[in-house]
Protein backbone atom coordinates (compact mmCIF):
# COMPACT_ATOMS: atom_id res chain seq x y z
CA UNK A 1 0.00 0.00 0.00
CA UNK A 2 1.30 3.40 -0.92
CA UNK A 3 2.13 5.73 1.93
CA UNK A 4 2.76 8.81 -0.10
CA UNK A 5 0.87 9.99 -3.13
CA UNK A 6 -2.39 8.11 -3.47
CA UNK A 7 -2.57 5.59 -6.27
CA UNK A 8 -4.80 6.35 -9.22
CA UNK A 9 -8.01 4.45 -8.96
CA UNK A 10 -8.86 1.61 -11.32
CA UNK A 11 -12.20 3.29 -11.73
CA UNK A 12 -10.76 6.45 -13.16
CA UNK A 13 -11.38 8.57 -10.08
CA UNK A 14 -8.58 11.05 -9.66
CA UNK A 15 -6.80 11.16 -6.31
CA UNK A 16 -7.88 14.79 -6.08
CA UNK A 17 -11.52 13.77 -6.31
CA UNK A 18 -11.11 11.17 -3.64
CA UNK A 19 -8.75 12.85 -1.25
CA UNK A 20 -9.12 16.58 -1.68
CA UNK A 21 -12.34 16.19 0.25
CA UNK A 22 -11.10 17.54 3.58
CA UNK A 23 -14.61 17.22 4.76
CA UNK A 24 -17.53 17.05 2.39
CA UNK A 25 -16.93 19.03 -0.83
CA UNK A 26 -19.61 21.44 -2.07
CA UNK A 27 -21.02 18.61 -4.15
CA UNK A 28 -20.85 16.16 -1.28
CA UNK A 29 -22.41 18.42 1.30
CA UNK A 30 -25.98 17.57 2.11
CA UNK A 31 -28.56 19.92 0.57
CA UNK A 32 -30.80 22.07 2.72
CA UNK A 33 -34.49 22.65 2.61
CA UNK A 34 -34.11 25.34 0.00
CA UNK A 35 -32.03 22.99 -2.10
CA UNK A 36 -29.02 25.33 -1.94
CA UNK A 37 -25.70 24.40 -0.41
CA UNK A 38 -24.78 26.87 2.29
CA UNK A 39 -21.46 26.47 4.05
CA UNK A 40 -22.34 28.85 6.85
CA UNK A 41 -25.44 27.04 7.97
CA UNK A 42 -25.64 24.18 10.33
CA UNK A 43 -26.76 20.94 8.78
CA UNK A 44 -30.48 20.66 9.21
CA UNK A 45 -32.09 17.70 7.50
CA UNK A 46 -34.73 18.65 4.93
CA UNK A 47 -37.77 16.64 3.88
CA UNK A 48 -36.74 13.75 1.69
CA UNK A 49 -39.04 14.84 -1.09
CA UNK A 50 -37.10 18.09 -1.54
CA UNK A 51 -33.85 16.24 -1.90
CA UNK A 52 -35.49 13.67 -4.12
CA UNK A 53 -36.65 16.44 -6.47
CA UNK A 54 -33.16 17.94 -6.52
CA UNK A 55 -31.73 14.56 -7.31
CA UNK A 56 -34.42 14.04 -9.93
CA UNK A 57 -32.44 16.35 -12.20
CA UNK A 58 -29.82 13.62 -12.35
CA UNK A 59 -32.35 10.93 -13.20
CA UNK A 60 -32.99 11.94 -16.76
CA UNK A 61 -34.44 8.96 -18.61
CA UNK A 62 -32.18 9.54 -21.61
CA UNK A 63 -29.07 8.86 -19.54
CA UNK A 64 -27.95 5.24 -19.27
CA UNK A 65 -28.66 3.59 -15.91
CA UNK A 66 -25.85 3.75 -13.36
CA UNK A 67 -26.46 0.15 -12.30
CA UNK A 68 -28.01 -2.34 -14.65
CA UNK A 69 -28.75 -5.94 -13.65
CA UNK A 70 -29.94 -8.57 -16.10
CA UNK A 71 -31.38 -12.03 -15.45
CA UNK A 72 -29.74 -12.48 -12.05
CA UNK A 73 -30.01 -15.91 -10.47
CA UNK A 74 -28.57 -17.11 -7.19
CA UNK A 75 -29.34 -20.24 -5.21
CA UNK A 76 -28.14 -21.49 -1.83
CA UNK A 77 -28.62 -25.24 -1.85
CA UNK A 78 -32.31 -25.80 -2.46
CA UNK A 79 -33.18 -22.17 -1.72
CA UNK A 80 -33.59 -19.76 -4.61
CA UNK A 81 -32.55 -16.25 -3.55
CA UNK A 82 -32.70 -14.62 -7.00
CA UNK A 83 -34.81 -16.05 -9.81
CA UNK A 84 -33.89 -14.26 -13.06
CA UNK A 85 -34.22 -10.72 -11.74
CA UNK A 86 -33.54 -7.66 -13.91
CA UNK A 87 -33.32 -4.07 -12.76
CA UNK A 88 -32.07 -0.60 -13.79
CA UNK A 89 -31.08 2.08 -11.28
CA UNK A 90 -30.22 5.59 -12.45
CA UNK A 91 -27.76 8.00 -10.88
CA UNK A 92 -29.25 10.03 -8.06
CA UNK A 93 -32.09 7.61 -7.33
CA UNK A 94 -33.00 6.51 -3.81
CA UNK A 95 -34.26 2.95 -4.04
CA UNK A 96 -35.80 0.97 -1.19
CA UNK A 97 -35.93 -2.82 -1.57
CA UNK A 98 -38.70 -4.39 0.51
CA UNK A 99 -39.98 -7.90 1.02
CA UNK A 100 -40.49 -10.60 3.59
CA UNK A 101 -37.52 -12.36 5.20
CA UNK A 102 -36.00 -14.78 2.69
CA UNK A 103 -37.38 -12.91 -0.34
CA UNK A 104 -33.85 -12.26 -1.62
CA UNK A 105 -33.45 -8.54 -0.90
CA UNK A 106 -30.07 -8.78 0.88
CA UNK A 107 -28.78 -11.19 -1.77
CA UNK A 108 -29.79 -8.66 -4.44
CA UNK A 109 -28.00 -5.88 -2.55
CA UNK A 110 -24.88 -8.04 -2.24
CA UNK A 111 -24.90 -8.99 -5.92
CA UNK A 112 -25.36 -5.36 -7.03
CA UNK A 113 -22.49 -4.30 -4.73
CA UNK A 114 -20.16 -7.03 -5.99
CA UNK A 115 -19.96 -8.73 -2.58
CA UNK A 116 -21.17 -12.01 -4.07
CA UNK A 117 -21.27 -13.27 -7.63
CA UNK A 118 -24.60 -14.36 -9.13
CA UNK A 119 -24.87 -17.90 -10.45
CA UNK A 120 -25.83 -16.33 -13.76
CA UNK A 121 -26.73 -12.89 -15.10
CA UNK A 122 -24.85 -9.61 -15.34
CA UNK A 123 -24.41 -6.44 -13.31
CA UNK A 124 -23.23 -3.42 -15.23
CA UNK A 125 -21.91 -0.32 -13.47
CA UNK A 126 -21.70 2.85 -15.55
CA UNK A 127 -19.42 5.51 -14.20
CA UNK A 128 -18.54 8.73 -16.02
CA UNK A 129 -16.27 7.69 -18.87
CA UNK A 130 -16.08 4.07 -17.76
CA UNK A 131 -18.23 0.99 -17.58
CA UNK A 132 -17.57 -2.05 -15.39
CA UNK A 133 -18.99 -5.57 -15.64
CA UNK A 134 -19.12 -6.16 -11.90
CA UNK A 135 -19.71 -9.92 -11.73
CA UNK A 136 -16.85 -10.57 -14.18
CA UNK A 137 -14.25 -8.91 -11.93
CA UNK A 138 -11.84 -11.00 -9.83
CA UNK A 139 -12.35 -10.99 -6.05
CA UNK A 140 -9.55 -8.48 -5.44
CA UNK A 141 -10.90 -6.14 -8.14
CA UNK A 142 -14.43 -6.31 -6.68
CA UNK A 143 -12.95 -5.60 -3.25
CA UNK A 144 -11.23 -2.53 -4.69
CA UNK A 145 -14.43 -1.49 -6.46
CA UNK A 146 -16.31 -1.65 -3.17
CA UNK A 147 -13.86 0.50 -1.26
CA UNK A 148 -13.44 3.08 -4.05
CA UNK A 149 -16.82 3.41 -5.76
CA UNK A 150 -19.31 2.24 -3.12
CA UNK A 151 -20.16 3.06 0.46
CA UNK A 152 -21.92 0.77 2.92
CA UNK A 153 -24.09 1.29 5.98
CA UNK A 154 -25.03 -1.80 7.99
CA UNK A 155 -27.79 -2.44 10.50
CA UNK A 156 -25.56 -2.44 13.58
CA UNK A 157 -23.09 0.15 12.30
CA UNK A 158 -20.37 -2.49 12.63
CA UNK A 159 -17.69 0.03 13.40
CA UNK A 160 -14.28 -1.02 14.72
CA UNK A 161 -14.62 -0.83 18.53
CA UNK A 162 -10.91 -0.18 19.23
CA UNK A 163 -10.86 2.92 17.02
CA UNK A 164 -12.42 6.25 17.90
CA UNK A 165 -15.09 7.89 15.73
CA UNK A 166 -12.57 9.91 13.72
CA UNK A 167 -10.33 6.91 12.99
CA UNK A 168 -13.31 4.75 12.02
CA UNK A 169 -14.17 7.22 9.28
CA UNK A 170 -10.58 8.00 8.27
CA UNK A 171 -9.65 4.33 7.88
CA UNK A 172 -11.90 4.10 4.79
CA UNK A 173 -9.73 6.70 3.05
CA UNK A 174 -6.48 5.22 4.37
CA UNK A 175 -7.43 1.88 2.78
CA UNK A 176 -7.38 3.70 -0.56
CA UNK A 177 -3.85 4.90 0.09
CA UNK A 178 -4.63 8.38 1.38
CA UNK A 179 -2.19 9.81 3.96
CA UNK A 180 -3.44 9.69 7.54
CA UNK A 181 -3.47 13.47 8.24
CA UNK A 182 -5.53 14.16 5.10
CA UNK A 183 -7.83 11.23 5.89
CA UNK A 184 -8.45 12.45 9.43
CA UNK A 185 -9.09 15.98 8.19
CA UNK A 186 -11.68 14.71 5.73
CA UNK A 187 -13.22 12.46 8.38
CA UNK A 188 -13.48 15.38 10.83
CA UNK A 189 -15.30 17.40 8.16
CA UNK A 190 -17.86 14.65 7.65
CA UNK A 191 -18.41 14.10 11.37
CA UNK A 192 -18.93 17.83 11.78
CA UNK A 193 -21.40 17.91 8.89
CA UNK A 194 -23.39 15.01 10.33
CA UNK A 195 -23.73 16.66 13.73
CA UNK A 196 -20.94 14.81 15.54
CA UNK A 197 -18.56 17.73 15.99
CA UNK A 198 -16.70 17.35 19.30
CA UNK A 199 -17.20 13.58 19.38
CA UNK A 200 -14.24 12.70 17.14
CA UNK A 201 -12.19 11.14 19.95
CA UNK A 202 -15.03 9.09 21.41
CA UNK A 203 -14.83 5.35 21.18
CA UNK A 204 -17.74 3.55 19.56
CA UNK A 205 -18.87 2.12 22.91
CA UNK A 206 -19.28 5.71 24.15
CA UNK A 207 -21.71 6.67 21.38
CA UNK A 208 -25.47 6.13 21.24
CA UNK A 209 -26.94 3.87 18.53
CA UNK A 210 -27.96 6.87 16.44
CA UNK A 211 -24.57 8.55 16.79
CA UNK A 212 -22.77 5.33 15.85
CA UNK A 213 -24.96 5.04 12.76
CA UNK A 214 -24.05 8.61 11.77
CA UNK A 215 -20.38 7.64 12.06
CA UNK A 216 -21.14 4.69 9.75
CA UNK A 217 -22.83 7.08 7.28
CA UNK A 218 -19.76 9.35 7.37
CA UNK A 219 -17.52 6.32 6.77
CA UNK A 220 -19.63 5.29 3.78
CA UNK A 221 -19.28 8.70 2.15
CA UNK A 222 -15.85 9.97 3.05
CA UNK A 223 -14.26 8.32 0.00
CA UNK A 224 -16.58 10.23 -2.31
CA UNK A 225 -18.41 7.03 -3.28
CA UNK A 226 -21.20 7.62 -5.83
CA UNK A 227 -23.39 4.72 -4.72
CA UNK A 228 -24.33 4.01 -1.11
CA UNK A 229 -25.72 0.59 -0.14
CA UNK A 230 -27.55 0.33 3.18
CA UNK A 231 -28.78 -2.92 4.73
CA UNK A 232 -31.50 -2.18 7.29
CA UNK A 233 -29.69 1.02 8.34
CA UNK A 234 -32.30 1.83 10.99
CA UNK A 235 -33.20 -1.72 11.95
CA UNK A 236 -31.56 -1.51 15.38
CA UNK A 237 -32.86 1.95 16.30
CA UNK A 238 -35.99 3.27 18.00
CA UNK A 239 -38.50 5.08 15.79
CA UNK A 240 -37.44 8.64 16.66
CA UNK A 241 -33.73 7.93 16.17
CA UNK A 242 -34.57 5.92 13.08
CA UNK A 243 -36.31 8.90 11.45
CA UNK A 244 -33.42 11.14 12.38
CA UNK A 245 -30.77 8.78 10.96
CA UNK A 246 -32.81 8.21 7.81
CA UNK A 247 -33.02 11.94 7.17
CA UNK A 248 -29.27 12.29 7.63
CA UNK A 249 -28.70 9.40 5.24
CA UNK A 250 -31.03 10.79 2.56
CA UNK A 251 -29.75 14.34 2.86
CA UNK A 252 -26.13 13.33 2.63
CA UNK A 253 -26.61 10.91 -0.30
CA UNK A 254 -29.34 11.79 -2.77
CA UNK A 255 -29.26 15.35 -1.49
CA UNK A 256 -25.75 15.50 -2.88
CA UNK A 257 -26.58 13.72 -6.12
CA UNK A 258 -25.51 10.26 -5.02
CA UNK A 259 -27.40 7.03 -5.48
CA UNK A 260 -28.85 5.26 -2.46
CA UNK A 261 -29.95 1.63 -2.50
CA UNK A 262 -31.29 0.30 0.78
CA UNK A 263 -32.94 -2.82 2.10
CA UNK A 264 -35.62 -2.29 4.71
CA UNK A 265 -38.60 -3.85 6.42
CA UNK A 266 -39.87 -0.45 7.53
CA UNK A 267 -42.66 1.13 5.41
CA UNK A 268 -41.78 4.56 6.80
CA UNK A 269 -38.15 4.23 5.73
CA UNK A 270 -39.22 2.96 2.29
CA UNK A 271 -41.66 5.86 1.89
CA UNK A 272 -38.84 8.35 2.31
CA UNK A 273 -37.11 6.94 -0.77
CA UNK A 274 -37.93 8.00 -4.31
CA UNK A 275 -38.58 4.47 -5.53
CA UNK A 276 -39.73 1.30 -3.79
CA UNK A 277 -39.08 -2.19 -5.12
CA UNK A 278 -40.91 -5.17 -3.65
CA UNK A 279 -39.52 -8.68 -3.77
CA UNK A 280 -40.92 -12.16 -3.28
CA UNK A 281 -39.20 -15.51 -3.87
CA UNK A 282 -36.23 -13.92 -5.61
CA UNK A 283 -38.34 -11.88 -8.06
CA UNK A 284 -39.46 -8.27 -8.26
CA UNK A 285 -43.17 -8.09 -7.65
CA UNK A 286 -43.54 -4.34 -7.45
CA UNK A 287 -41.77 -1.20 -8.60
CA UNK A 288 -43.21 2.17 -7.65
CA UNK A 289 -41.43 3.73 -10.62
CA UNK A 290 -43.04 1.39 -13.12
CA UNK A 291 -46.27 0.35 -11.40
CA UNK A 292 -47.02 -3.04 -9.89
CA UNK A 293 -45.25 -5.87 -11.65
CA UNK A 294 -46.95 -9.18 -12.08
CA UNK A 295 -44.76 -11.95 -10.77
CA UNK A 296 -43.13 -13.78 -13.64
CA UNK A 297 -43.26 -10.82 -16.01
CA UNK A 298 -40.60 -9.18 -13.89
CA UNK A 299 -38.03 -11.42 -15.46
CA UNK A 300 -36.02 -10.01 -18.28
CA UNK A 301 -36.63 -6.34 -17.55
CA UNK A 302 -39.22 -4.52 -15.52
CA UNK A 303 -38.81 -0.89 -16.33
Amino acid sequence: MSHGRPERSTLGMSPERQFSAFGPTRRQRPCHDDGIMNENRDFTPAPASTCASAAGLLRHPSRPPMLSARNLTKTYGATTALAGLSLDIRAGESVAIMGASGSGKTTLLHVLAGIIRPDSGQVHLNLPGQSVQVEALAESARSRLRREAFGFVFQQGLLIPELNALENVAVALMLNGAPRPASEQAAAGWLQALGLGGMEQRRIGELSGGQAQRVAIARAQVTGAGVIFADEPTGALDSATSADVMQVLLESTIGAGKTLILVTHDDGVAASCGRVLTMRDGRLTGDSAGGVIVAGLAQGGNR
Binding site: M1, H110, A113, I115, S140, S143, R144, L145, R146, R147, E148, F150, F152, F154, Q156, L158, I160, P161, A172, L175, R219
Partner: peptide
Protein backbone atom coordinates in the same frame (compact mmCIF):
# COMPACT_ATOMS: atom_id res chain seq x y z
CA UNK B 1 -17.26 -12.63 12.68
CA UNK B 2 -19.78 -9.85 11.96
CA UNK B 3 -17.15 -7.12 12.13
CA UNK B 4 -14.67 -8.92 9.84
CA UNK B 5 -17.46 -9.71 7.37
CA UNK B 6 -18.53 -6.07 7.31
CA UNK B 7 -14.94 -4.90 6.77
CA UNK B 8 -14.71 -7.33 3.87
CA UNK B 9 -17.93 -5.88 2.43
CA UNK B 10 -16.44 -2.38 2.74
CA UNK B 11 -13.53 -3.59 0.60
CA UNK B 12 -10.84 -3.92 3.27
CA UNK B 13 -8.33 -6.37 1.74
CA UNK B 14 -7.83 -9.59 3.66
CA UNK B 15 -4.10 -8.99 3.75
CA UNK B 16 -4.73 -5.74 5.65
Amino acid sequence: TDLYTSLDHLGMPRKT
